[in-house]
Amino acid sequence: MQKRVRTAVFPVAGLGTRFLPATKALPKEMLTVVDRPLIQYAVDEAREAGIENFVFVTGRNKDIIEDHFDRQFELETTLEARGKTDTLERLRQDLPAAGRTSFTRQQEPLGLGHAVWCARELVGYEPFALLLPDMVFKAEPGVLKQMMRAYETMGGNIIAVEEVPHSEVSSYGVIARGDGDDTGFAITKMVEKPKPADAPSNLIISGRYILQPKVFDLLEDQPRGAGGEVQITDAMQTLLRSQPFTGVKYQGRSFDCGAKIGFLTANVVFALDRDDIRDGFLAELKKLNINISD
C-alpha cells in the first residue's frame, strides 16, 4: 500500500516582478482575491485534501507570510471586545494546527525545482503534495482532493492538467497523454515550455502535484533547464523512466494569479460568488456598462 500524503510544499520565494510596484514590499502570495490572500487559497485547498503539515519555501522579505499563519493576540482581543466573534472564529479556522507549519529559505532564485529541493529535510523521505500559490482554482471538490482520489487508486506520482490553446503551450510544462480517462490517465512524456510545433499535446501542468520523494534525489544534481533555472519538469521527466505518472484532468476552473488578467478575473469571479457582496458588486459593474448577465 502506498504511503499517505501528509505534507504539502508551497514555494513562495518568488519576487513577483509582474506586479511591481505592489510587490516591492508585499509578497505576491499575500495579494488578495477579494479578501483572502493567494497563499490562503492554496492552504485551504491542501487542508480540504487532508494535508497535515505545511512547508513554505520562502525568501527575503517574506516574513509576513509566516505572520499570516500565526495568531495575532492584539487583533483577537480587539475583535472579541467589539463582539465580532464570527470574524474571530473565521480567522482561527484559517490557521493550521499548532506545530504544523514550517518555513525554510531559498537563498537564490534558482527555479521551482531548486525551491522544492530546499524543502527536502522538512518533508522527509515520503510522498508530498506541491502547490503553486499563483494558481487559484474554483473547483468542488478542490483540485488536490480530486488528485488524492487518483492517488488512492494509482499511487505513484500525480499531476493536475488542463487544456490550453496550442499557441500558448510555450509558457507551460506540457504532457503527453496515454491510456485512461480524465480522472486518471498515464503520462508518457513531459517537456518544459516547448515550442507549439514540438509540444506533445495541449495539456499543461496546472501547478498541483503529488510527488514521490525520489524526486529530491534527482533535483540534487539536476542541471539548469529552460530559463537557466532548475526545472521540476525536467526532474519529473527523468523520474518517469522508473516510476509511473498519472494525469488528472480536473473538474473546475483555474486562474493564473501570477498574471494581471488572471488575477483580476479571479477577483471578479470570486466576488460574484459571494452572497454578502455579489449584488452590490454586480450593481457597480453594471454602472460601468459592462455586459454581465444575472
Rank of each mutant, 00 (worst) to 15 (best):
S206H: 05
Y41W: 10
I204R: 01
F54P: 01
R278C: 11
D94S: 13
N267H: 06
D276Y: 09
P213W: 02
I210R: 01
G252H: 10
R120E: 14
I205T: 14
G111W: 01
D234C: 02
F263H: 00
P11A: 08
T265F: 00
G252P: 08
E168N: 11
A176H: 03
N289D: 14
V143I: 12
Y151M: 01
L20W: 06
R4F: 07
R4Q: 13
T104R: 05
P11W: 05
P223D: 09
D181L: 05
R278E: 13
G228K: 04
Q251N: 13
D221M: 10
R6F: 05
Q251A: 11
M154W: 03
V136P: 04
P127M: 02
F128E: 00
I204N: 00
P223G: 06
I261V: 11
M190K: 04
Q231G: 03
R6N: 13
R4D: 10
V136S: 02
R71V: 14
V269E: 11
V269T: 12
L88G: 02
Q243D: 13
I39F: 00
L240F: 06
E45W: 00
K195Q: 12
L91Q: 03
A283T: 14
L79F: 09
P21Q: 04
P37W: 08
P27I: 11
E52L: 11
F19M: 03
R120A: 13
D182G: 01
I232L: 15
S170G: 09
E80G: 14
V116H: 02
Q222V: 08
D217Q: 08
V161G: 00
C257P: 07
G178M: 02
V123N: 10
L282I: 14
R90P: 02
Q106R: 04
Y41F: 14
Y125I: 05
L219Q: 06
D234H: 06
A13R: 09
P109L: 10
G225R: 05
A266V: 08
I205M: 11
R100S: 15
R224Q: 14
F263G: 03
E80N: 12
E229T: 09
E220M: 11
N157C: 04
R92G: 09
V269Y: 12
L131M: 10
T238F: 02
M148N: 01
A150C: 15
